[in-house]
Design a protein around this nucleic acid. Sequence first.
DNA 1: GTCGATGCAAACGTTTTGCACACTG
DNA 2: CAGTGTGCAAAACGTTTGCATCGAC
Lengths: 175, 175
Amino acid sequence: VRSAHSKVRVVASPESGREHLPPGVTEAMIVEQLRADGHRVTEPRRLIIRCLIEAHDHRTADDLARAVQAINPEVALSTIYRNLEELERLKIVEHAHVGHGAVSYHLAAGTHAHAVCESCGATIEVPERLFGPLLEFAETTHGFAIDPHHIALVGRCAACRRSAATGPGGATGQR
Amino acid sequence: VRSAHSKVRVVASPESGREHLPPGVTEAMIVEQLRADGHRVTEPRRLIIRCLIEAHDHRTADDLARAVQAINPEVALSTIYRNLEELERLKIVEHAHVGHGAVSYHLAAGTHAHAVCESCGATIEVPERLFGPLLEFAETTHGFAIDPHHIALVGRCAACRRSAATGPGGATGQR
DNA sequence: GTCGATGCAAACGTTTTGCACACTG
DNA sequence: CAGTGTGCAAAACGTTTGCATCGAC
């Protein structure tokens, strides 16, 4: 039961389709923003941005590294991390903690949170507004401001629930 | 800004007090359960259970190791991990992913979820019922069963929000 | 030419594993 | 006395950092 889901498969939203996808962010726009903030525009940086836009699902630093290295194998993993850090500082990128595994990065399109299947790694997206009661409780009773983006909820997707029902071998299992 | 919160401070619930604390679980009860499941009762195991009960706030494997080693320094960290794993299999213990840091373990008292302050690590507890809308959405639109226990929500506690407001130095910061 | 950004390799903190030995049942 | 559970040490994993060099401005 070691490493499952290396590739996060995003379960399509039934009706909505792609309401939340990168709202037309372009490489140029981001580059612009970087320049404005006094940063240099280098090839690795440009590649990272490009791959981040192309991969509109969420991916780990390592996934991203592979995508970038497919274009330029010279780019180092540490560069990926440093750039993701920078891009987060500029609010261009956000990350989410997806249970046990590696952190997942994506463009800051806002407005949705994530839930990951603990057995297969499939991700669904959840409208932020459903966090309302939680936000309100935390706010009013503790003055605490919950950030729904930052972590992924955990659970079991339809498929895995089904197969768990059939195959009884199901240990408590996953992390 | 390296390692902050090693000690997770649990913000007291304003009124409720300790409604959810270990509902009188005892070492003996758990030992019983272990035996029933065909496991052996060893000293390390006993100590781990004891410390887990005594520390009714949530703690990392490492915290727990220190507590156990205060009694018997021989106990290895790997034993802690292996036992936590076993206890989870028996549904005696649960773990929660608390943002970036180490995983947090606690007795499976159920009925509440967690939210952690991303800057100081303070934890609040959140009634499970507030997840209702989320559970329902995930269930009806994707057949997905969210498990509110498994991960901690992330946000900012009252104190840190206040100091962020005063001290402007606040970077985007924390992980 | 300056200094921010990079590649590499090594360090880090947490968790997992392989192995020989110890102890419970 | 069988075999689970243990300690130890080392590996694995994702991430961060130090340092010399490179290249955008």
